Computed example of a mutant assay.
Amino acid sequence: MPLVPGSSPIIPGIAYACSLYIVLIMTVMCLIMYSRQRKKAYLYMVFAFLFIIAYEGMNIHYLSKGNTLSSSTLWSTRLQVFSFLLLNTSVYLLYKKITKRGYALLGFMLLLFLVPLFLTNYTPLNITSGQLFYLNIYQGIVIIVGLCLITPRIGQPIKYIIGSVISLIGVILSIIFLYADHINATLNTIHLLLPLLYYTVIFIILFQRIVEQMQSIYRSSITDGLTNLYNRRFFMKQVKRYVDQGLKVSVIFCDIDNFKKLNDTQGHARADQVLKQVADIIDEEVSGVGLSGRYGGEELVAALVDKRAKVNIIAENIRSRVEQESIVTISVGHSSLRKNVSVDELVSQADQAMYRSKTTGKNKVSPFHLPSSRKETTRQKEASAEL
């Protein structure tokens, strides 16, 4: 915001110092994120923050010299308005890529910003007050354009609107103070604190977006890209954690019947669609009582940890829904944790039970039973090896 004449040096000094501190923190955050992701939004923000640091530094220097309008106030305002344009652009880039039409609009806005530099020999832009007035009007235009074009396209519209309103109030007060004979002390204090409030809002927007991106990166590292279920590694890790906590864990192992034939006859796209549909059914059935994952290929698994959950009922619900809601059927096996059984053995038991369903007619649910003879043990080991 442009510096207002007639203000006490204490309040603006505190406001400028706090603003610099917040901007420096955001600059470091953006540099770290850009070094990791190479996202243009963070680079744009760094440039915007550097301009902000420059004009806030000019304001602090100017404050120590006196508080009247001069050419130094004009240059600090130019830096402030240009950084405001860059900052709005970078907020948009946090969520979207700029199209050719967007770059054309940005170029037009830059030309508007440069107009006073080419018209310094003409009134009213040949005097400081006239150029300050133009810059304030220009910033108001940037705010309106941002509200119309940026707000509906980003993930934090309410915060962006709040920041825009704060900026708009600052623009209005700057214009009033520019030509007012007397400045109200309360309004002057509010005006000086508005940039600090605006940077705080930008900090919240930036911080939340970084958190969202970190969560997205983490989520992609533990989930399967096609089904959006947990991947095998994370699923096994979570089941082990449940076992270590002493929870009663049951595992359901599902395999889509005749999936290779579906791939060969209807294509991979159709097969992927079916696989995702089956995964959604499994995820819905175990939601709230456990977690689901993709074990590999067309093999999908679920782990139940809720004592109230009946593994046989949920397994049958999954099988029944897949048969009714999709074009395929599934063979299902399940096993519950017993004493001295490891996580790998638990999953293997559910796998063996699924194989029994697969080899005895498909489209059925089979529980795991401990082998009653050496012959049965050998058969299950061979079946597991074949899978």
Rank of each mutant, 00 (worst) to 15 (best):
Q156A: 10
F207I: 08
P157V: 09
T123I: 04
L197F: 15
L173H: 00
Y230G: 05
A180D: 06
T227K: 13
I161A: 06
R233V: 08
L135N: 07
P124H: 09
L147C: 12
L125T: 03
L149I: 04
L168E: 08
G246F: 01
Y122P: 04
R232W: 00
T123V: 06
Q245G: 15
F234R: 14
A185P: 05
I222W: 07
V165N: 02
I183S: 05
L168C: 08
N136R: 10
N188E: 09
L168K: 06
V243H: 12
I143F: 05
L197H: 04
I162Y: 00
T223V: 02
K240L: 08
L194Y: 03
N121C: 03
S167K: 04
V171S: 03
L197K: 10
I127L: 01
I217L: 13
N126C: 02
Y122G: 00
F235N: 12
H191F: 02
Y134N: 05
V211I: 14
V165A: 07
T200V: 03
L168R: 06
L226V: 04
L149P: 04
L226K: 13
K237R: 14
L168T: 10
Y134P: 08
L147D: 08
T186D: 09
F203W: 06
F203G: 04
P124V: 05
V243Q: 11
K237P: 02
Y160M: 10
P195A: 01
G246Y: 02
Q215S: 09
Y138T: 02
L192T: 15
R153H: 11
L125P: 06
L226T: 11
L135V: 04
I161S: 07
G140H: 05
I176S: 00
R241V: 03
G246K: 10
K159P: 03
V243M: 15
L132R: 11
H182R: 14
Q245T: 01
I137W: 04
R233S: 13
P124Y: 06
Q213G: 03
L192H: 07
P157L: 05
F133T: 12
